[in-house]
Design a protein around this nucleic acid. Structure first.
Length: 113
DNA sequence: CGATTGACGTACG
DNA sequence: TCGTACGCCAATC
């Protein structure tokens, strides 16, 4: 993870994640593609690992994998925190999966651009 | 410095 | 539609 204040691919990821509208979700690949798909989608996830240590807090819970699965669930302090945050925004989560993921999907290259 | 791992994605069958 | 195989790139061991 980069030092604080160091501009890099990670900061761009955080920036995009902050732009995700409430009640919407996106995927790592979509963010990576919006940033030019420089690195593989794994790097996007790596960037979000330290999201909690930086300010303001990035709503990383709105980012899930391509299947809509909450793969990040295991990474949160209380693993259930991620699901709670999603449900708090009106996003239905069943079996660690985002319900109607296709409808809630938010593509930065399509919407933000 | 080489091997392993990981918040992923695409290709195949 | 689902499970398996492989590729990616950086960090960690």
């Amino acid at each position: 993870m980069p030092k604080k204040g160091d501009r890099s691919f990670f900061e761009d990821v955080w920036q995009v994640v902050r732009l995700i509208p409430p009640g919407r979700v996106t995927s790592y690949g979509a963010i990576g593609r919006y940033l030019g798909a420089a690195s593989s989608a794994r790097m996007v996830g790596w960037a979000l690992i330290s999201h909690e240590t930086m300010t303001p807090s990035v709503p990383g819970h709105r980012v899930v994998n391509r299947s809509g699965l909450l793969s990040a669930r295991h990474h949160y302090k209380p693993p259930d925190r991620m699901q709670e945050l999603l449900e708090a925004e009106g996003i239905e989560v069943k079996e660690d999966q985002v319900v109607k993921f296709r409808e809630l999907f938010w593509d930065p290259t399509l919407e933000l651009l």
